[in-house]
Amino acid sequence: MLIPELDIFVGNVFIIDWEIFKLWLDGHECPSAASILQQRGSLMAGATMDMLHGDVLDHYRSFSTLERLLEVPTLFVEQRVLQISPNDQTDIIEKYYDFDDAVMRELIGKKPSSKLRKELDDVCEKTGVLVRSCRRQFDNVRRIYKQVDEMTGNVLDNIRQQFLLPDPLARRYAAILFLDWVRFETHKRKLAHLTFNDFFVCADGLLRHWADEECELDKEFFQDLREIKAILEREKEAKTVTLRKLEGGRLSTDAAGDLTQNFRSLFRSLVNIATGLYRSRELKDLFIDLQEKIVEPCKCARWTQSDMESFIAAINFDVSEIETFRRQVTGAAGETDLPILWRRYLRAVGPCILQLFAS
């Protein structure tokens, strides 16, 4: 008697439907996701709504398995339970850790605590993002916050290596952590119109010019900045130099008239903000101070974006332009040129002002 041969192949290749994955990430429950797919024409001829619902439910179960693995991306890419291609692994991690700017706007500047997580219903209502998605985004921030906060070394590298995120997304998370660690004021009424991207641009600039690789602000620089107050002794000279550099129609008529009349106020505000940064409270209020003392007065005077760009460039004095800048100061880091302090200050604050002014 011949015994028939039977070959059996068992595989566990993980097939992901990216459209359903997106609905899951957006926080839709299974029935809601099936209904959306039906409206998009995903129900094939001969298929029933129950069949579509079953397919979505099957994917959702798989995504729930994925979610547990995604809490530690380095283990996710090493696991062999689910056979997923390297390209798909990369895409899954990036999409899972991506976030809605509107949601993150509500979370920045606050420690990602359990108390804040309980307030996510309010975030959901304000942003229109479903609460399950808000929780995923919050939990991702908290996970990265806890992991990186306990590590030494380059924060950006730690985020990239521990969570396998692409550089642009890792930079956004580094900015979030920085805003949270310093507790910058981001939620005052006068800042309510600003977007997450506005704060990201500002934070990224501060990190590049005022902080080290561990996102630690240079406190010695802030102490040295107190010496910048000496430039107020040359206020008239500073005004003359600035207006001369702006001759030839570089400012609109409105801005030119306003600057001639109100240079003292703007200039003193910029200097006073610089000299107060060594105080924790004034550092935290940096954005509100720039908004109230620089941006709003200029907007009220009908400055244009081009006007502001020209002004920021013009007050970036060099050593040959202001008599006070020909001296050196002895600060926490030894002798420091005043022009170097002033330029380093403006390299971070200038783009912040421009970003806030554009919003």
Score class of each variant (00 low, 15 high):
Q223E: 15
T304Q: 04
E309F: 03
S252F: 02
E227V: 01
A255W: 03
S306K: 09
P297S: 07
Q223T: 08
Q291Y: 05
D204C: 02
A314W: 08
E237I: 00
L232K: 05
I312N: 15
A211P: 14
G248T: 01
I231S: 06
K219V: 07
R268S: 05
R226T: 01
R244F: 13
L194C: 13
L246G: 07
N272F: 06
E220I: 03
R208W: 07
E292S: 11
I228D: 14
I273W: 13
N262Q: 13
E296D: 15
D224W: 12
E233P: 02
E247P: 01
G205R: 08
E237H: 01
D218M: 13
W210G: 06
I228V: 01
F221R: 06
T253N: 12
R234E: 15
E282K: 07
D218I: 02
N316K: 04
I273Q: 08
R302I: 04
R302F: 07
D198W: 05
S280R: 07
L277V: 11
F267I: 00
K219F: 08
A255T: 02
L290S: 02
I273R: 14
A313S: 15
E214K: 07
I312V: 08
P297M: 13
E247L: 10
H193Q: 15
R302W: 15
R226P: 00
K293H: 10
T242K: 14
T253C: 13
D307E: 03
Q261P: 03
L243T: 03
H193S: 09
V271T: 09
L206W: 05
R208T: 15
I315E: 04
V241Q: 06
A313M: 12
G205K: 06
K236V: 09
E292F: 01
S269Q: 04
E282V: 01
T240H: 15
K245G: 08
T240Q: 15
G248D: 07
E216K: 12
R264K: 15
T195P: 13
L259Q: 00
L194H: 14
Q223M: 12
P297R: 10
P297H: 06
D254F: 04
D258H: 01
R264Q: 11
E296P: 02
L206T: 09
E282L: 04
L251A: 05
I294G: 06
R279H: 13
S252V: 03
E214Q: 14
T304S: 15
H209N: 11
E247I: 10
N316E: 15
